[in-house]
Nucleic acid binder design. Sequence first.
RNA 1: GCCGAAGUGGCGGAACUGGCAGACGCGUCGGACUCAAAAUCCGAAGCCCUUAAAAGCGUGUGGGUUCGAGUCCCACCUUCGGCACCA
Length: 820
Amino acid sequence: MSYNFLQVEKKWQQHWKDTEAFKVVEDDSKEKYYSLEMFPYPSGKLHMGHVRNYSIGDVIARFKKMNGKNVLHPMGWDSFGLPAENAAIKNGIHPDIWTRENISEMITQLNELGLSYDWDREVATSSEDYYKWTQWIFLQLYNKGLAYKTKSPVNWCPSCETVLANEQVVNGACERCGSDVTKKNLSQWYFKITDYADRLLKDIDNLDGWPDKVKLMQSNWIGKSYGAEVDFKVKNTDKDLKVFTTRPDTLYGATFMVMAPEHPYVNELVAGTEYEPKVNSFLSELNRLSSIERSATTLEKKGLFIGAYAINPVNNKEIPIYIANYVMMGYGTGAIMAVPAHDDRDFEFAKKYDLEIIPVIKPNDDSIDTENLTEAFCEPGIMINSDKFDGMTNKEAIDKISIDLNERGIGKKTVNFKLRDWLISRQRYWGTPIPIVYCKDCGEVPVNAEDLPVKLPKDVKFTGKGESPLKTSETFMNTVCPKCGGPAVREVDTMDTFVDSSWYFLRYTDTKNDDEVFNLDKAKYWMGVDQYIGGVEHAILHLLYARFFTKFLFDLGLSPVDEPFDNLLTQGMVLKDGAKMSKSKGNVVTPREIIDKYGADTARLFVLFASPPEKDLEWSDDGVEGSFRFINRVWRFVEEYKDILKTGDITINNKFDKELNFKLNEVIKNVTHDISLRFNFNTAISFVMELVNVMYKYTQNAPEINRELLSKAVESVLLLLAPFGPHFTEELWTLIGNEGSIHLHSWPTYDEAALVKDTIEIVIQVNGKMRDKIEVEANINKDDLETLALSTDKIKSLTNGKTVVKVIVIPKRLVNIVVK
RNA sequence: GCCGAAGUGGCGGAACUGGCAGACGCGUCGGACUCAAAAUCCGAAGCCCUUAAAAGCGUGUGGGUUCGAGUCCCACCUUCGGCACCA
């Protein structure tokens, strides 16, 4: 026999809806708490990863509410994006309809899980009243010069005739049709996130509530490196070739120079020379490689001398200029000085093309023959072959040489970032239109803010071919210029969906505002997000973009904070048989089947109990069964004893009462600690299980049931479990005669006095090995404890005939006797 | 290659600042209830040797620090994650 979860869960879900239980408004008399889970793409079907993510957030939200906080716990939809468009191409359903249907299905499923969302604050990035403001933010970026258009190579699928996002390129091939992806130069919109690189990096230090792992990933992604820019003259020309190096100390060891094959100087330097055809064939060979193959470190280093020489500014040495496949145009200046003696890649290249190797640093201990290197020497050491810098440590020389370059006007200290500007153009329909028009006379003109939103048209053809579906809508394309009123055409690209999700957490504070992106006072009340929860796959892009937007809006005086998320929890994946659940592996367990068979409370309890939230969770059907059993065990207990429970002052009458009372208070303390400080829901639940076990034993063993005490224990169990299993606890709460929702009741408190024990158990070790235990008065002094420990029969027999060298007494814990 | 995380029973996982390793759950075994089964309740259980007790061995491997190490230090192995020719 088990409880009727179907009926109970339905009943309370309806009740919460009817009473608007989770509606929340600003209230200055209460401390706020903003609990946020990363909003989903509305695919239409919830998976276990969602269940885990939202269960974690819901426990936190409900727990904070029971602790007196005014809790903002919203949900919404990252509803622009490719799948909707693919559905349109495949099935002819309009993306808008497809998306709306999915959203309503997902809302049903989320409500079936009993999640405490304030649906009044729902946002959908694809709705006009949301993307209007996404466009508005675009205009602000544009006005500040942080949104710009430029030609750049993009991924192009020749078969689908469309641009692909990086994520849609799998091993150099189109995700949809498998064709080789090529590069195509197209005009693209960018956000100048690089202007914020330094701040985005520096402020990572303030993110105390973020996992180190995520902070590190962001740091690496931004990739700041310190070094110097050095100007090399190109022999017999007036050109200066700039290189970036992090090792200015090795400047005297530069024996050749390598440029990226795409470097603009390459064409100019070889034009009309005997090297031109060779360079061209080198280039076309390289272009045949996909970007994946090109960037593989295993790719053999290949290069070509282009007939020109550069002059090393520190010693006027002429060095040959090469192009090679291992130098990237996108980083630094696209050209490097090659120092084979002290760089692995340059060494490999020099050996292959038989180029000169000059050591300029030797190890402190002469352990390496620098004249006959077998590999590049990359350790710190002492400067040699470097004029006036000889004898210095190379560390010292980095600084000295940089200063010297600066003074002579041939170089300077500089920094470089790996972070690039953010390409936001997508040649797609189902996204936020970019609010720009092109006028024959005025050129590129931003749409006036009062004319927003630039709406997505309905009369669009979805063929899956061509650059952008919006081109097929004449009503959309043809417009008038906001500046001169003349005929103009609209930008047909839409924005990357990461743009939409970079500010939704701010909109939640004020979702219905038609006049402002969000109200500053409301944002002031709710921001920052106290707890953000989501998958670690968003550790870099989404979180970095969201930080960028928040800082930008902060600079405009629109956002009250310059970092959006005070605390971040990255939950682990849900695995089955050691692998991520996926259709292709056939190891998917759907939330639907679990809810139907056991109910939402069981599903929630299991995903929270099976593993700590930040670790991967191994799915176990037997484990789910166990969680279901536990809920039933609680249910039966309450049913059996509900009639004799009696609230009132508790008197402790015997050792059974005392034991139960101790456990009760201990568990309240531990559960509170584990939820609030560590988010270790798995141990929190296990403590409640212990309490329930003790309660069962109590009813069997105690000579007489202490009705007030048992009543307090039952209430506490329900309150402690309320955030985890909101439905059955609500039902049992009324069953034992309470009025009102358990979720409006305050969190149970414990009595420190109940945790004081009269006697405690002390472990006795001999030479660090546990040999005996004794029960002693809790307040026994050290000397008495030592005497007692040495006098037990067991210890006496073990120490007999040996010398006691030392006795270590740790009060309230153990005694360790060292013997020889 | 670089950076990071993690290795604990048959399984998922506990052990907060070094102090009884294995909480809690699953599975297993035994008992009660039942004509029987399921469900439920109670109990056992790291491994090894044993009728039992005691001893011994046990937190990836090898060393070290300490009265005492899953926890700290050094070296290594394995697995997972991120970045990947970043000059």
